[in-house]
Design a protein around this nucleic acid. Sequence first.
DNA 1: GATGAATGAGGATTCATTCAT
DNA 2: AATGAATGAATCCTCATTCAT
Lengths: 210, 210, 210, 210
Amino acid sequence: MPKVSQTYLDSRRAEILDAALECFSREGFHRTTMQDIVEQSGLSPGAIYNYFASKEEIIEAIADERHAREQQMIVARSSEGALAALVQIGREFLNSLQDPAERKRRRVTLQLWAEALRNPRVLRTVRRGISGPRKALGDLVAHAQKRGEIPMALDPDAIARVMIAVFQGLILQLAWDTETQVEPYIKAAEALFSGLPLSKRGARQTLRKR
Amino acid sequence: MPKVSQTYLDSRRAEILDAALECFSREGFHRTTMQDIVEQSGLSPGAIYNYFASKEEIIEAIADERHAREQQMIVARSSEGALAALVQIGREFLNSLQDPAERKRRRVTLQLWAEALRNPRVLRTVRRGISGPRKALGDLVAHAQKRGEIPMALDPDAIARVMIAVFQGLILQLAWDTETQVEPYIKAAEALFSGLPLSKRGARQTLRKR
Amino acid sequence: MPKVSQTYLDSRRAEILDAALECFSREGFHRTTMQDIVEQSGLSPGAIYNYFASKEEIIEAIADERHAREQQMIVARSSEGALAALVQIGREFLNSLQDPAERKRRRVTLQLWAEALRNPRVLRTVRRGISGPRKALGDLVAHAQKRGEIPMALDPDAIARVMIAVFQGLILQLAWDTETQVEPYIKAAEALFSGLPLSKRGARQTLRKR
Amino acid sequence: MPKVSQTYLDSRRAEILDAALECFSREGFHRTTMQDIVEQSGLSPGAIYNYFASKEEIIEAIADERHAREQQMIVARSSEGALAALVQIGREFLNSLQDPAERKRRRVTLQLWAEALRNPRVLRTVRRGISGPRKALGDLVAHAQKRGEIPMALDPDAIARVMIAVFQGLILQLAWDTETQVEPYIKAAEALFSGLPLSKRGARQTLRKR
DNA sequence: GATGAATGAGGATTCATTCAT
DNA sequence: AATGAATGAATCCTCATTCAT
């Protein structure tokens, strides 16, 4: 029986990750020192090392956290059609922009993308974060092809990857320019995918009316 | 070795940047030490500091170099239509994949994207690197709209940004997985933009035949 | 070694300053490396930087310490007359020569005098170190003038400065030649100031008898 | 027969020393880099090393130059009496203050005093710079003693050293505070030494009338 | 579990000096 | 003699991590 409750431990861990996220967002992984995290969290170095074995491990934990969140957001929630799912995701994405905390997180996401090139564990997390949506979207496309809505000549997986790219690009563009207008971007993306045609007419109508 | 020619100086500078690119590609900006660049270049620390005031400045020079290259690659070369330009760019991109040096460079590009969040000069370079193609593509779309090929309701700039996103996403996906198949991706992207319809039929045909 | 007492911290700080003084005395500020201080103190570089932000700050702390010590030594302790005070100071100075540690310190004092030309904080400290005695001595002279012991035509502050110069010159001469005889120098200085006449006869007698 | 005239060589050497003096005055010996001297002199590093084997040697040459100048200034020019000589020196000193170049030089002098603690050659030069005037002044005092003008009990050399101290202190005080008033200081010093009495009445009169 | 002073290898940068031209 | 690019040891300082309390 531990001296303190698991709840306590979990909340301490979360505090550290919050502090780290804040620092990473402001200064990047490499310019952030453990001392920065110490100050941001109000804990001591020793305390932090009780929860994480290294700075690297904190970065990896942040990656896991991000991955879990995005997974949750992107995972297709609709079997109605690919476009409907995309539109849904787009909407959520749009809403998340209201949250300043989410802006910070997106900056960290971009850093994780670069970090993935160096850190195999981060790479694995990033890849896993994509493979889910990629598969889901690919399946939707394949379904649409069976229904004759999309030419069989196209690779469903490739289309899924292009769809994901549209989101990745938006994240990049937003990170570099917070003034970036999201609404027209989403509309343009929608127009593209409706023209494929990737979806039933219904889905398109729904979005248009919004 | 006094009073050397400007050509000599330029080639030394280029050597240093090459060495730095190699190191950055392998280890990332922050894990690369000046000593690494020293060893890779075969020069001495002092020599390198004769050409660049700091490691930061090397990173910025790399950004400028990348920017110039990509500018040159992406800038629309065709007035035939947006799709033709895109296809052309896609082809070049495809070809560049044969060059292992280009793979290295793309890894560095991704790092520059993250670096832009911290370094205002890199940010400016990255933004400039996008603004050119963005404007060029936007103009093409606007033209197509005047000719009635694309609905006026869509924002030309937004469409341009989506197009750019498709390339950015491909760069990301390739960086994380060198096995990534480029050909199907390009085809899928082409299908999307032909459905818009963004281009004349002719352009689409060209691509199909390749 | 967490949560240590303030006393502990103070004594560590003092240890570092002692080590630095030793090094500075031997090699001068600029030839002394942090590594020298590390070795002399038996601490690690990091430990030292926990107490001082830079080598410069150590020099400034040494200046403060010197200033405090000299302040304490020179500040007039006698209201009997300027000469008595001077004699007193001269005696203490003489005694301090017995202490080999004091020899070291005086060498550092000379370096601080030069450093003051470059480092505004050191300059301020050096100036403050003079302004106290200068004012005190000036007041004594002014008093003597009121009592008619010194011609009103002379500037009390100027006389104070000359007195101080006599000590400064002695410090210089001692630094360059440890064989320098202090006793005759003090006697000669005393003769000068008694002739002014700066003091009551009594004070002069006191000195003579020693 | 050399390729260039000795005059040419000498003037180059002087240029370098002038440039070095300028730099040393501004930044001190140790903060001045050879590159600073290169820029100040308009020569190249290689050229400078043709004239001086090391930075150290430049410092030593500066010391020699200073020494020669001061020697020339201080060396007793009068056999009329110690005071007359001192007054003369004081006057010259006073005049030299008008020359801004001289202010620079005095700052360097102070640095040489500190440097003497580390560099035996500089020490020797500094000592030689003092020993001349010291001996000259000591002789004057001894003469006055023989004539019964000064008590035999005082050490002539000690009095000479006190006199020198009065100048040294003035140099220090001027270096730290360019506002320092020289005139009252000189007057006060004169009053001291006239009271000794160190000189004939005449000398004192001369000064008073000025 | 927490604390925070200490560790010390490592890193960016400097700069006196050299030497091929 | 002059040039100035190159050298590379030396230096200041950082910071992830440890561990005695």
